[in-house]
Deep mutational scan, measured.
Amino acid sequence: KKTCTFCKKEIWNTKDSVVAQTGSGGSFHEFCTSVCLSLYEAQQQ
């Protein structure tokens, strides 16, 4: 099972999830929504 990098909820429907390359290492992270992605990126600043 996949979990959201930001909120840690399980991702049930992968077509609704967002995968983004974030951080200095350029690793890929999966998020349940684009909202979680935005919040995660804001936290990394």
Rank of each mutant, 00 (worst) to 15 (best):
G26R: 10
L37C: 10
A42E: 13
G26V: 07
S27D: 10
T14P: 15
E41A: 05
L37M: 13
E41Y: 01
V35N: 12
Q45L: 09
T3V: 05
S17I: 06
A20P: 14
C36S: 01
K2Y: 08
Q43E: 13
Q44A: 14
A42W: 03
G23T: 07
Y40S: 10
K8M: 06
N13Q: 15
T5Q: 04
T22I: 03
Q44V: 11
Q44G: 14
I11V: 09
F6I: 12
C32W: 00
H29Y: 05
E41K: 13
S27Q: 10
F28I: 08
H29L: 05
T33A: 11
F6A: 13
Q21N: 09
S24R: 10
K8R: 09
K9A: 08
D16E: 15
L39C: 06
Q45W: 14
S38I: 02
C4W: 00
S17G: 13
V18Y: 03
A42R: 08
C4Y: 00
G26F: 02
T5P: 03
V19M: 11
F31G: 03
W12A: 11
C4V: 00
G26C: 07
C32K: 01
Q43D: 11
T33C: 11
S38Q: 14
K2S: 03
G26Q: 09
V19I: 03
S27F: 13
F28M: 12
S24A: 15
Y40P: 03
G26K: 10
F31R: 02
I11H: 08
A20R: 14
V18K: 14
S24L: 04
C7A: 00
S24G: 14
Y40R: 07
Q45D: 15
C7F: 00
F31P: 03
F31D: 02
G23D: 07
K8Y: 05
V19H: 04
D16W: 02
Y40H: 11
V19R: 13
L39T: 12
L37G: 12
T14F: 11
E30H: 14
N13E: 15
E30V: 05
T14G: 10
Y40D: 07
K9T: 04
C32T: 01
S27Y: 04
D16C: 01
S24Q: 13
Q21R: 10
Q43G: 14
C36Q: 01
T5A: 06
Q21G: 13
A42Q: 14
A20L: 06
L37T: 06
E30F: 03
T5W: 04
Q43I: 02
S34P: 07
F28V: 13
